[in-house]
Amino acid sequence: MGSGSVFIVFILMALVSVSAAVMMLLSKNAVHSALWLVLNFTAIAVLYVVLNAPFIAMVQITVYAGAIMVLFLFVIMLLGAEQLQGISGVHGTERYHRAVAFVLVALLVVGFGVVIFNGGTGGGETAVIDASPVALGLRLFEAYVLPFEVTGILLLAAIIGVAVFTRRKKKEA
């Protein structure tokens, strides 16, 4: 693809993903929110394809849009928690929410500002790497073997934790 068509796809997908994210926050129905999030994940997967990383794009769809969001929907539907109840005034904690949200937004704006005024993220300097599955696998298991294994152990710990928590307690004799 030429750089012009890449730019058009980028603009389209950026619009789709940002508006889907905003709609996810605004929609009052939890199932609709989940669907907007799925759209967001899919648009980001298209961005990965444009960035010449098809492997990551497919994994993004399989893991996020496929497995995780189906689980979200499953939980929402099982609990019957589609409709958002008004949370204002519950325990009087909403002012903390606002304060925390304000601080986070301020940090985000400052971060963007710093990046923009320092002249971009330096993305132009990164080398174009071979993103085929084989190259990715070799890179993961040769250059980044330690982080990979550490992540694996973390995930394993989480799985074991879930198994322990959901196990039925035996009756004490």
Partner: peptide
Amino acid sequence: GLNVAVLFLLAITSISVYGVVLAGW
């Protein structure tokens, strides 16, 4: 010649459950 074709199949299969779930809901 797609070099991630098998993953593509898995990805699309994993989102194909939405139709049924959403129809039910």
